[in-house]
């Protein structure tokens, strides 16, 4: 019961911060912002909770920071890779759609995983088969067709960290 109240107070502060950034710091803005964010969180605050106890564990936020650093490094590597493929005279591409196996079940983390796959070197997620746990990925230079090897090359480094964030 108590954890739910803490969570709502945290969400109210977050929404109020976004309101202040977007509309400026004046007295009527502040009063109206507090009223609006309280009403919003009371109405829609617990719309997407699956396991409310994971909110309290601190180590998942540290893992999330680590994930952001790895992700930014991969994005910069992806840009250098794509720029090399665009600017070279005979375009070394060998595209194809391959299958990647994943064991993550929750909706939000599947979305994060698919977005990260899209922004990392040479891959673009096309569709998700949620029942069997497959992600279909368009790869710009296919090195392997087998499911296990492809999973190890594309998704393993993100999935390892995301499993730690979900705290199961």
């Amino acid at each position: 019961m108590k954890i739910r109240v803490y969570r709502k107070i945290f969400l109210i502060c977050l929404v109020f911060l976004v309101w202040i950034i977007l509309s400026g710091f004046e007295i009527y803005n502040v009063i109206f912002g507090i009223i609006c964010s309280v009403i919003l969180i009371l109405l829609f605050g617990d719309i997407n909770i699956q396991n409310e106890w994971t909110f309290k564990k601190p180590q998942r936020y540290l893992w999330f920071l680590y994930y952001i650093i790895i992700f930014l490094y991969e994005v910069i590597k992806a840009n250098i890779d794509v720029a090399y493929r665009i600017l070279s005279p005979n375009m070394p591409i060998k595209p194809g759609i391959v299958k990647v196996k994943t064991s993550i079940k929750s909706d939000a983390f599947l979305t994060i995983l698919a977005n990260s796959i899209t922004l990392t070197p040479g891959t673009l997620s096309v569709d998700i088969d949620k029942e069997n746990g497959y992600i279909y990925v368009h790869w710009i230079y296919v090195r392997d067709v087998d499911v296990e090897a492809v999973t190890k090359k594309i998704a393993h480094k993100f999935e390892k960290i995301l499993m730690k964030i979900t705290c199961k």
């Binding site: 591409i93 060998k94 595209p95 759609i97 391959v98 299958k99 698919a114 673009l124 096309v126």
Partner: peptide
Amino acid sequence: SPVSSHALAKAAYKSGVKMCQQSVCDEY
């Protein structure tokens, strides 16, 4: 931005756009 590109790729496949000639495999 990744969400909209993902939606466009899926829509392009479903509306029947072929992949180019150098492509190797199509598991989808």
